[in-house]
Design a protein around this nucleic acid. Sequence first.
DNA 1: GGACGTCGTGAGAACGCTCTCACGACCGGA
DNA 2: TCCGGTCGTGAGAGCGTTCTCACGACGTCC
Lengths: 342, 342
Amino acid sequence: MTSTGTRNGSPTLDEVAQLAGVSRATVSRVVNDSPRVSPEARLAVQAAVETLRYVPNRMARSLVTRRTDTIALVLSESNTQVFSDPFFASIVRGLSARLADTELNLVLLAARGAREQEKIGRYARQGHVDGVILMSLHSDDLLPDILAGTHLPLVLSGRPLDGRSIAYVDADNTGGAVAATELLLSLGRRRVATVTGPQDMVAGLDRYAGYRAAVERSGGRVDPDLIAAGDFTEAGGMRAMTELLSRAPDLDAVFVASDPMAVGAVQALRAAGRRVPDDVAVVGFDDAAVAATSDPPLTTVAQPLGEMTALMVELLLDQIESGERSVEARVCDTSLVRRASA
Amino acid sequence: MTSTGTRNGSPTLDEVAQLAGVSRATVSRVVNDSPRVSPEARLAVQAAVETLRYVPNRMARSLVTRRTDTIALVLSESNTQVFSDPFFASIVRGLSARLADTELNLVLLAARGAREQEKIGRYARQGHVDGVILMSLHSDDLLPDILAGTHLPLVLSGRPLDGRSIAYVDADNTGGAVAATELLLSLGRRRVATVTGPQDMVAGLDRYAGYRAAVERSGGRVDPDLIAAGDFTEAGGMRAMTELLSRAPDLDAVFVASDPMAVGAVQALRAAGRRVPDDVAVVGFDDAAVAATSDPPLTTVAQPLGEMTALMVELLLDQIESGERSVEARVCDTSLVRRASA
DNA sequence: GGACGTCGTGAGAACGCTCTCACGACCGGA
DNA sequence: TCCGGTCGTGAGAGCGTTCTCACGACGTCC
């Protein structure tokens, strides 16, 4: 056979050009819709593209343009529980909505353990993506280190734990926690406990710091018996609440550092015969969907997720556009959402 | 400046070759560890790679090898609830564990709506991935269609809804549902209800079919009042159970088509003052982590997830290896896990 | 009617890699 | 001594794009 059109692989630019009776360059122009093409040529090419079912080869294109038009959202999480966190789902939804009418593709990469994190680091460095958004960081994560060593545009979801200079977008976790705790205090509650998030994550740390600050500012003292650690899961919240109840049966309010944990806490409270909010007032964090539908509906701290995802994309796109790493930080205000639990 | 080593971008093979004093071909051989390299050359190259921090450009490599060494797991789901489904998390965990010690990378793609599905289809067709695993399919999904039109290796998680010939791996959903329902019947329960999954998903359909089959086989009749539709979420399970209770207050058992829904159902039951399993026996499906920890621990149907993910990878890899689409189907046996809820 | 833009087009050189092929160097067997 | 084989190596041709240039064919303006 001579060089027929029907080869094993997909059709190439050359084949389209041949069929359309123009040069490779013209086909390329049509495909990337450059204005400098005559209507006739354009039509001919479009027809050829159609009949050959031509799809440009991205590898070849990326090789010369040095762009892949895809960005990665990497979840640097050792266990798969992130997936069950509604916060994460919201971020993914927000990101892909934001990217929907751009040329950009979004890929999710999940990393558990050092080995996989290195694999992901390699993946990113090899030029598969134009930039990465890193979320759900723990203090022992390697990825910020690995990626900081490259020129890859990078944005963190959440303030970097070690003070490293990397662009990031975060909610004012501390401020939100202060507001939540102060609400509880202003309600006349005297024994305000807290279920914290993981203390190796910035959201866990900051929300705990906010709680402490509010308690101290009110003239109270921070009682260790009123503090229990959770892990942002419902089951963890239930466990922590049970523990709290046994250590401080007289508590009359609790600030829970995430809504899924708050749901678990309410269950534990109920199991112990306490009424919410009559006996114990509860405030959560995140304003997840579950907060509105749980029983009772949860008073919680809302983060402007839409704004945050939009900012992340903006920061990343700026870096990609300019070719320069930025270290811009954006912290978004939170707001208290009053419902029935406090 | 002449062609110095320090350019703006990353170092290339040529630069490494120059530094090591060998040819490009030799460097390539070392990088892909071909045996035909003398120890001295190998050492020199490795040193050069080290000092230049050389990372091969995947685009260039893929362009010639026609492989990307990455496979995609695509979630063709219109709402982001998949993420909260523990089944999904298990699949992701299983897949990446299975791929951990291979060269293969795993990327997750999430598609909501026709527009994004087309975008993902394009992404896949453009040569970003060597193969795709499709999960969580609904009947109106475009992706099987879009991808079936390509030569891309493809494996479905779950039997294709429209009988199309595509390789797939599935659990014996029908068999599992039959076993669950028969257990309930064998316990002497006379009014066995069901909370189904979405009826546009094969797991929802098959588990419902299994329930019907078991009821009919036992000589009973399928009572519409005993059937309510859920959506595989906890909230949906709660809603459906509440509905069931109002339509058929005399029910004494319920087969719930997923564990998260079963957890919701138990809550609804409890809210209505029914004891589990004394008043109403409950069987779930999936053997999710939550099944063991919920109160009471759930009797449920376990799927061999590890086996299933291994099979998906195997089927996909076979296709990639051979360059041929296969239509092989593998259905894995389920097993009943007896706990306290039935 | 000649000089000068603009406009559509094609030739051809990249991009960074892999892979075939040829070529010397070396070895063992006749 | 010569021949055939292996072994390490390098030259060079691709892979399918984009993009810079150069080049004719037009106007348009003096």
